Simulated assay, not measured.
Amino acid sequence: MRGILMSSYQSLSVSTERGNVEMQYYKADNATCSIILVGGIGGGFDSPCSGGLYPRLCSILNSKAISALRIKFCDTHSLDSSVKDVEAGISFLKQEKISNIALVGHSFGGAVIIRAAANSPHVKVIITLATQSYGADVISNIKSGVASLFIHGTLDTILPENCSIYAYTLAHEPKKLRLFKNTGHELSEAEKDIEGEILNYIDQYLIV
């Protein structure tokens, strides 16, 4: 983990009309910004880069007074259900007096956060990691001013880089596309550079 002290989190079970949504809340004192991170179709609290990227991001962002919320999808076979899981997370953060939110999603989760962002005025940043294209077309409906970062590996054999290129083409400005050579679907080969891209983008567009 390259010497970074991992932050602790609070396990939450947020009640919704569809049942309880399990979350891990990395709370930063006096935070007005937060990031929501979701994985892919594999379910659980999964993370790209061999499970290491999201915990590291949560710890680093906590040190910047930014809270973080990881969400476990109730049903990864349903895009609509998973969007509602993220919306439940957004509602929770609003209760925590969070006004600016960034969404990060890997693979299936990329399409989920795009759809969730289209429904929330509190989302200021979306970051997709090796996103699927199915369900991502609504990105053109997201209000102008929401910043979008698309990251993909050129050696992705699960979802080709064209998925992110497609979403990027439809997105409004400000937006950025980063394609990493010799990098697969889990993005482990470029973990350090990807971590830096995400942190820089959040510094630029979430903290206002």
Results as ranks from 00 to 15, higher is better:
89 G>M: 09
90 I>L: 13
91 S>H: 03
94 K>H: 10
96 E>D: 13
97 K>V: 01
98 I>K: 11
99 S>I: 12
99 S>K: 13
100 N>M: 03
102 A>L: 06
102 A>N: 02
102 A>Y: 01
103 L>K: 11
103 L>V: 10
105 G>S: 04
106 H>A: 11
108 F>L: 05
109 G>I: 06
112 V>W: 00
114 I>L: 15
114 I>N: 13
115 R>N: 15
115 R>E: 13
115 R>M: 08
116 A>T: 09
121 P>H: 06
122 H>F: 12
123 V>L: 06
124 K>F: 08
125 V>N: 03
125 V>G: 06
126 I>Y: 10
126 I>P: 00
126 I>W: 09
127 I>M: 14
128 T>V: 15
128 T>N: 08
129 L>S: 08
130 A>D: 06
133 S>L: 04
133 S>A: 15
135 G>T: 07
135 G>D: 12
136 A>N: 06
137 D>A: 15
137 D>Y: 05
137 D>L: 04
138 V>R: 08
138 V>Y: 02
139 I>A: 12
140 S>Q: 14
140 S>P: 00
143 K>I: 09
143 K>M: 03
144 S>I: 10
145 G>L: 07
145 G>C: 09
146 V>S: 05
148 S>W: 01
149 L>P: 06
151 I>S: 02
151 I>V: 14
153 G>F: 09
153 G>S: 10
155 L>G: 01
155 L>M: 04
156 D>S: 13
157 T>I: 14
157 T>A: 13
158 I>E: 11
159 L>G: 05
160 P>F: 11
160 P>I: 10
160 P>A: 13
160 P>L: 10
160 P>W: 12
160 P>S: 14
161 E>R: 07
163 C>P: 08
163 C>K: 03
163 C>D: 15
164 S>N: 05
164 S>C: 07
165 I>R: 14
165 I>G: 00
166 Y>S: 10
167 A>E: 08
169 T>Q: 15
172 H>M: 04
173 E>T: 06
174 P>H: 08
174 P>R: 04
175 K>A: 12
176 K>C: 13
178 R>D: 11
179 L>T: 04
179 L>I: 11
180 F>A: 02
180 F>Y: 15
181 K>I: 03
181 K>V: 04
181 K>W: 00
182 N>D: 15
183 T>W: 08
183 T>A: 11
